[in-house]
Nucleic acid binder design. Structure first.
Ligand SMILES: [Zn+2]
Ligand SMILES: [Zn+2]
Ligand SMILES: [Zn+2]
Ligand SMILES: [Zn+2]
Lengths: 132, 132
DNA sequence: CTGGTTTTGACAATCATTATCAATTAGCTA
DNA sequence: TAGCTAATTGATAATGATTGTCAAAACCAG
């Protein structure tokens, strides 16, 4: 059975307290910085569990590391992410869901999943950049 | 200046002769298997160059490795990929393009880019799996 | 409490990718 | 064609993220 440990709870809370997506390494550092003696392997395991139970969302950063986030939306959704400050907006995309399902079926593909993320500069970062 | 070496040409040709997306490691193995003494670092460099000049498309596999493919479509497009055999179909996604642009604008995001890939089991692999 | 099972964490192992850097080579020039 | 020189190569080391190992510690049902 699945047990409740303070480590798992710590990871869950740390993730909840983080605005954007964060890597396992970074979350581990943050926990250490706040005095937690949690081990790195445990953070990896906890994040993996959270992701597999749907309590956390994960995506691959453009440079290939896995990033995690505790999303407020429970169902399937996607993200609009500021590539500068990490600000993340959860978005639903019905038309995209339909499209993905349709295009897979059209080509005889089954068990289709999709990766859909939009990266950009948020309003604040756009302003900053304009000023620079 | 940029020089033409048989190594770069070998990588280009090997990529052209590959149906789906392939990793740098796998392409290097394939080249070796066919008798080429090309070095691994060179394959990485060549693929990186091809990707940056747009001659090849690249994406992050779900488990975080970079995959490359010589696409026939020159313009912007997306992919429907068999997660078992790698079979890849190039697809256009006008509705998704519109949606991505719109959702970014709605939230005040600028310089929006997007990652859109569909993974599934192709018809052949679906049949195989059913038989197993 | 206690025992059996799960989880942890320090550390090693793996894997992809990048950095080094001496030796090689493409492509220009005379 | 021979020589020059900067770009390129490749063996290898280094890096960095992630996973495997396994004895010790922690949960929790009874
Ligand atoms: Zn921002
Ligand atoms: Zn979706
Ligand atoms: Zn297939
Ligand atoms: Zn697109």
């Amino acid at each position: 059975m699945k047990r409740n440990t303070w480590q798992r709870e710590a990871v869950r809370e740390a993730l909840d307290g983080t605005e954007g997506f964060i890597s396992a390494q970074a979350l581990h550092s943050a926990l250490h910085a706040s005095g937690s003696p949690i081990g790195l392997a445990t953070v990896y395991r906890a994040l993996g569990d959270l992701a597999s139970t749907g309590e956390a969302d994960s995506l691959q950063s453009p440079d290939g590391e896995a990033l995690y986030r505790a999303c407020s939306t429970t169902g399937h959704h996607h993200h609009l992410i500021c590539r500068n400050c990490g600000l993340t907006v959860e978005i639903s995309a019905e038309p995209v869901e339909e499209w993905a399902k349709g295009v897979a079926a059209e080509h005889g593909f089954t068990q289709a999943a999709h990766v859909v993320d939009v990266f950009g500069l948020c309003a604040a970062c756009t302003k900053l950049q304009a000023g620079a």
